[in-house]
Design a protein around this nucleic acid. Sequence first.
DNA 1: AACGCCATTCGACAATGTCGAACGCTGGTC
DNA 2: GACCAGCGTTCGACATTGTCGAATGGCGTT
Lengths: 255, 255
Amino acid sequence: MPGSVQSIERAAAILRLLARGSGRLGVGEISTSLGLAKGTTHGILKTLQDVGFVEQDKASGKYQLGATLLHLGTSYLDVNELRSRAINWADALASRSGEAVRIGTPLDGKVLVVHHVFRPDDSLQTLDTGTLLPVHATALGKVLLAYDSGVAAELAGATLEQYTRRTLVTPAALRKAVAEVRETGWAGEAEEFAAGQASIAAPIRGYGGYVVGAISIAGSVDRLYPSAGRVDQSLVTFVQNASRAISRDLGAGRW
Amino acid sequence: MPGSVQSIERAAAILRLLARGSGRLGVGEISTSLGLAKGTTHGILKTLQDVGFVEQDKASGKYQLGATLLHLGTSYLDVNELRSRAINWADALASRSGEAVRIGTPLDGKVLVVHHVFRPDDSLQTLDTGTLLPVHATALGKVLLAYDSGVAAELAGATLEQYTRRTLVTPAALRKAVAEVRETGWAGEAEEFAAGQASIAAPIRGYGGYVVGAISIAGSVDRLYPSAGRVDQSLVTFVQNASRAISRDLGAGRW
DNA sequence: AACGCCATTCGACAATGTCGAACGCTGGTC
DNA sequence: GACCAGCGTTCGACATTGTCGAATGGCGTT
């Protein structure tokens, strides 16, 4: 691999470590986690601090992520074509369906939420743009799993965490679900991620016809799966129409 | 400066460049902007691509920010103590005042929005968490300018951009406004950033009594400055109460 | 069909980051 | 109150590693 800058890879590893740990970490913890000398780790951390990517808690001496990253992340959203093209359609889908809408894209074998529209009328929700969702327990994830080979590759070998009683935890069950998605063109999920919640998703295709993301509605299982666990077909149609409209905007129509 | 890792600084400079330019940049543009050899720039870019911090547009060959940054930025919000402590108070302030609420912290001589609560009842607003606001044209910025010496230092020498007819563009006018903030303990702004809009802000103090951020309400100038350009004092009191409550939560009371 | 732009590759040089040991601080403990 | 342990930090020598500039190859344009 030519031109791979070692120190940058290490810096990125530190940032990811800080993001996972969801808290402050000390130089010692980081250096042992990554197998680096304490002095080396300190040098990288100090540099990251200079550029604002990490901050040091004066009291404990430990390090945490820095404010500059928030701005960079937001700037990414501004450039992201999938999101900017999808925003208008997402709003329309939310008001038509009456449910919360999310748009996701694959990232490291998970689903990154790049856009989130609150459920109309209900205002006590927290925005989760930037959150990572599991692939195997969400409708968004199943869609990406069905159409994006990279996601499937990165999931191979990972353990499927059980969130509720209905979460698909065996590879066989997941394979069957994914095959169903490929047949029908949409994915559903009822109480597999959170009790009482359900979601419906469809793929978004970019230029060349490749799947670049997915769009979903999420809400109470009583509304999405009203009659004895059977999905509300009109909601599925809403989601599919939105996904097709966005795909057309992204230039998937020409293929 | 011991242990400053050059390549990481350069990588950060590239990311900031991509964030500013708000679009895709080629290897050539980046290398000339930073005064680096094209080969060097390419190596750093390829590494940043490996770790997901940048993505390459297959069609044009140009580079843009990557999805991983969005997740890192969101992780920063989870750790940020100012934000997590302030969320509940911000919601209360929004419903009491009926206006949109923002919480800001200083970053590179600007104001970084770390939290944003929509105005109640009105749902057609775009979330601007992660956005950078100018210090000289917002109430949030004036507060930080008045109490945070670092912000003032970084602003020195910068030109004050004119957004509206009422924007304070001369250092003298800004100095006078800042002095007023220090006297009264709060900052206001009427149509200095956007026509028809106004805002009111107060400082948030952390452990030790130092100002770590500011909280503001923003909305129509007709509501915030109702009678002939005179501020609505009850709104100022709401903001000040919120700022004091958050400061107390952060441990500023002990000093 | 030929040009020019641009991302990419390559190899040699030395600048640069790495390592491990030693320092000094803070907080807890006997 | 003095010791100890753990932490972040500093330091200097070594060679690994990133840097540079020229050369390459592909793509779109003229």
